[in-house]
Simulated assay, not measured.
Amino acid sequence: MPDKKDPIVCSAAPDQRRTVLVLALGGTIAMTPTSAQGGVTPTLTGSDLVTAVPGLQDFEVTAEDFRRLPGASLTTGDIVELTHRLEQADREGVHGVVVTQGTDTLEETSFLADLYYRGDMPVVFTGAMRSAFSAGADGPANLLAAAQTAASPQANGQGVLVVLGDQIHAARHVRKMHTTSPAAFHSPESGPLGHVIEGAVRLHHDPSRHIGLIALPVNPASRPPEVDIVTASMGSTGVLLHGLEKKLSGLVVAALGAGHVPDTWVPRLTALATEIPVVLASRIGTGPVLTSTYSFPGSEIDLLDRGLIAAGSLDPYKARLLLGAQLAAGAARPEIAEAFRRYA
């Protein structure tokens, strides 16, 4: 879809304005009812979103319709192309970029963008838990706070950020923790980086970002490596692991507890790890995978000795993105293991 630019005329004096580019990808924030059954779909443009928000007159805002999709339909190729646009905006001297999208995948898209994005210009992802025509729609307030963050010099060099409910999160830490609550996003391991209060950005600590960990693919349309997740559960025999070496380029195991699987999984995982990179993460989503505490068959010591790669504190979904990005860059298993060690 070609980019469409809709400049928003602001009334503030030129010396008070900072330039903010809004890249609209769709999602609940852009959804309105389109059927008699009352369901919503993304229909609003980036210009529609921006013009509906009082308070953006402090900035010189340009809106582009980059995609118009539900969050569940975004792909890694979309985010690679988005990151190319972010780096172009950085070169153009834009002060900050806001990305609006669906919250279903926001924690993943922002994380992937953070892996690739090498600039210092603030990049802020935001969305909404309630559609634009719902009572108490949260999209306008989230968009305003995101723009205030993107325009703030304090956000320079902080990596990709996520702003919802006036909280500022690092993309690599944030998680969606509730299916419907407007306060769905949290950083359970670190807490928020800061808050937007009375329009001002207040950062509480430095995220110590890993700048541009992975080289950005030149061709966004190239087919990404096939990487997937298999989740361990009590009594599972691991039947879904059978033959995956013929279907996948890499695998993430969402393990029990601190990195454990049923002993019935061990032979299949051992064989898989000789064919493709297999990353060991925890299905819990908070806390690291251990490396040296338990030693029973199927424990973290056992599995790491069999060639699996520890995900550190990355949850399975973000571990999958890091593994896929490494494979897309042509990394071999030792380089992949080192990348997870560095990121952890």
Results as ranks from 00 to 15, higher is better:
45 T>K: 14
57 Q>F: 06
119 G>P: 04
143 L>A: 06
126 T>I: 02
156 N>F: 13
93 G>S: 06
156 N>E: 14
65 D>P: 05
48 D>I: 01
130 R>N: 09
78 D>I: 03
154 Q>L: 10
155 A>M: 03
155 A>K: 12
91 R>G: 02
169 H>S: 04
65 D>I: 00
94 V>G: 05
165 G>M: 12
142 N>M: 02
172 R>C: 10
150 A>H: 03
118 R>Q: 08
64 E>W: 09
77 G>I: 04
66 F>H: 15
104 D>P: 11
87 E>F: 00
39 G>K: 15
150 A>D: 00
168 I>L: 05
115 L>V: 02
66 F>K: 15
159 G>R: 08
170 A>S: 14
166 D>G: 13
88 Q>R: 14
33 P>I: 00
37 Q>P: 15
51 T>W: 01
105 T>C: 10
77 G>V: 05
164 L>N: 14
90 D>C: 09
65 D>F: 00
139 G>P: 06
77 G>A: 10
153 P>W: 12
74 L>C: 09
95 H>N: 10
142 N>V: 00
39 G>F: 10
115 L>W: 03
63 A>D: 02
126 T>H: 08
159 G>Y: 03
137 A>W: 01
164 L>T: 14
50 V>L: 02
167 Q>W: 10
160 V>D: 14
141 A>T: 07
48 D>Y: 02
115 L>R: 06
113 A>L: 11
77 G>F: 04
50 V>I: 00
147 A>G: 09
92 E>S: 04
81 E>Q: 15
165 G>W: 13
57 Q>G: 05
44 L>N: 12
160 V>C: 09
45 T>D: 09
36 A>I: 08
129 M>F: 02
34 T>E: 07
170 A>Y: 10
82 L>I: 01
120 D>V: 03
46 G>L: 00
46 G>S: 01
44 L>A: 11
162 V>H: 10
88 Q>T: 07
134 S>K: 14
118 R>S: 08
149 T>L: 01
85 R>E: 06
116 Y>H: 04
95 H>F: 06
102 G>M: 10
121 M>I: 01
49 L>W: 02
81 E>C: 07
130 R>W: 05
35 S>N: 12
53 V>M: 01
86 L>W: 04
43 T>F: 04
89 A>T: 00
65 D>A: 05
74 L>N: 08
162 V>R: 12
107 E>T: 12
34 T>R: 13
100 T>C: 03
97 V>Q: 03
129 M>N: 01
67 R>V: 01
51 T>S: 12
85 R>D: 04
94 V>E: 05
